[in-house]
Amino acid sequence: MRTAPPLWALLPALLVLAGLSGGGLALALGRVGWADWAAVLPDGRVWAALGFSLWIALASSLLAAVLGLALAMLLRQSFRGRRVVGGMVAASLTLPHAVVAVGMLFLLSQSGWLSRLAFALGLTDAPADFPALTHDGWGLGIILHYAWKEAPFVALVLLAALRGRIVEQEQAARSLGAGAWGAFRHVTLPALAPALLGASVITFGFALGAYEVPLILGTHDPQALPVLAWQAFADADLTRQPQAVAMALLLTGAAAALLLPLLFWLARGTP
């Protein structure tokens, strides 16, 4: 039997959350005047940047969900070298994003290792023949980065959920005649759905607010909204600083509007 913790035990956490997030938000709102909103909201670049950030977040969280699910299914099997693979998955979580992004550049860019391999195999004649996977208009490099970086996170969340009752239910389904796919489709996947959705909400929110990865792997246009906001913040023209804060608030608003309903639904659905 679990008992709910007393309210006072939550107080420190609540204070930190309210103080940092709430305080930051209040300060931000205080810095932005109507004139700043009037400069930011009609700017087509801002909306293009918001769209680009949403696209990166959506594509990479979907890809990370699929890869993470596959990884979790693989890692729950017993096979030779499972511990090695599991260790590598856990280790990749500790790598900083900026480091992985530079690694992606070495791997995927038109003068990267893959391009050099293609050249050595005679598939391409020049760097420009290799497809543009970094600094491209669709943000492919950024999306691949987040898929690679977040799939292990999704897998670890799912592996934690894949214990206990779910195993008995799968065994019951199999003993009642369900095939491997049927048991996965009708028992495992529905049972994992809340954990998968929860992990995806986190990866989506993380990729939406990302600055360093789009900076390293992104193109000049469209740019991710956090990159655009930082440019405005660092502008020699100091009147652009409040506009940067307005862009950050816009991003926060978009994230809240998209993710809060999902989080409420998840909280209600969990027993």
Partner: peptide, 9 residues
Amino acid sequence: WRQGKTYPT
């Protein structure tokens, strides 16, 4: 480079 579709940042 890249037909000017992309510039370095």
